[in-house]
């Protein structure tokens, strides 16, 4: 029984960030189960780089280092970036991406609360346009791989780029479902044939759909804890479903089903963890709906009609640019004031 006055205080930044990290844990656990422990190395590398970079820039900017480090926002950025990268990416790719996200996209704009773009997505986009080959080289889920690497093998591959004797790169990597779908559609294969290949599961890609489901679970936890509001996830997922559903309904041989789009790529991670970033996203409820719907439309357009297999990063960055405008035009009427 608490005592009056019954004022609810907003949770501090560190509590919010801690809960976001907690909500990512089921996703990470599933990730390890599906792809092996390599992702843990990426996560650790990204976290370490983010904290060091943040501390160095804060020192340069003559700001208090420890309070800003303890708020956990750098760790959230690092984790989101590491989870978006291919799990067996070389170590320097993770380090460069995290450095770019923290130093350029976050601290150069003024640090937490001032960055107009989602730092993790800027880091991802910078890597994608700079190193397209490495960024599209995804390992197969363990159950599908011709040769499954042990944790030490993955460690060697991440740091030394060396595989066990006699194992070619092709044996451990494969096209992601989104990538495969795109190249096969160009070859004019019907969807029904394409999705019969073993890399497709019952929702999205085999293995990766489980990770997406785990993200969904974490997202529901965040909603229940009121860390994020329902507007952005719902509007994003609804738009993506509506668009892909319409196209799928009229030409099921040419356009993949809505559940495939929802559970492939980074859609679930985006819906609950990336698009819901409170700093680079809008604040009014209506603006949140428009913002998330815009990300949904852009993601679908880039995935289906664009050159890249997935479009989450670019969609989020493009909609981040619209946030000041959206917020300005959707200010709710203040009580007692005329419209």
């Amino acid at each position: 029984m608490s005592r009056s006055p019954y004022l609810s205080s907003a949770p501090s930044v560190s509590v919010i960030m801690l809960k976001v990290l907690l909500a990512l844990l089921p996703g990470i656990a599933t990730y390890v189960w599906v792809y092996g422990g390599g992702i843990l190395i990426s996560l650790a590398l990204a976290t370490l780089t983010a904290l060091l970079a943040e501390a160095a820039v804060l020192r340069l900017r003559q700001r208090p280092v420890l309070p800003f480090l303890m708020d956990g926002s750098a760790i959230v950025t690092a984790w989101l970036l590491a989870l978006a990268l291919p799990p067996l990416a070389p170590w320097w790719l993770v380090v460069v991406g995290t450095l770019f996200a923290i130093v350029v996209a976050k601290q150069l704009y003024g640090g937490l609360g001032y960055n107009p773009f989602n730092p993790a997505m800027i880091g991802y986009a910078a890597l994608l346009i700079s190193f397209p080959v490495l960024m599209t080289q995804w390992p197969s889920p363990l159950e599908l791989a011709k040769v499954s690497l042990s944790f030490t093998d993955q460690w060697h591959y991440i740091f030394m780029r060396s595989l066990p004797l006699g194992v070619p790169v092709d044996a451990i990597s494969s096209a992601t479902p989104l990538d495969y779908l795109k190249t096969q559609l160009i070859l004019q294969q019907p969807i029904s044939d394409i999705s019969n290949t073993p890399i497709f599961g019952w929702l999205g890609g085999r293995g990766s759909e489980l990770v997406a489901l785990a993200y969904l679970l974490g997202g529901i936890y965040l909603l229940q804890q009121r860390i994020i509001s329902w507007h952005i996830p719902l509007a994003f997922l609804a738009t993506l479903t509506l668009l892909s559903g319409t196209f799928h309904l009229f030409a099921p041989g040419l356009y993949a089903s809505p559940q495939f789009h929802l559970f492939s790529g980074a859609a679930m991670l985006c819906a609950f963890f990336i698009a819901t970033d409170p700093v680079s996203g809008p604040t009014t409820p209506l603006a949140k709906l428009v913002f998330a719907a815009g990300i949904g439309v852009l993601t679908y357009v880039i995935r289906v009609f664009g050159a890249y297999p997935d479009g989450i990063a670019f969609a989020v960055i493009l909609m981040n640019m619209c946030v000041p405008l959206l917020d300005a035009y959707t200010q709710p009427r203040v009580f007692g004031h005329e419209k």
């Binding site: 460069v96 910078a126 346009i129 190193f131």
Partner: peptide, 15 residues
């Protein structure tokens, strides 16, 4: 050097 294409592209000029 693997090359960091971003620096050659227009964003690199602005940054």
């Amino acid at each position: 050097y693997p090359g960091f294409l971003l620096a050659i592209l227009p964003p690199g000029a602005f940054i």
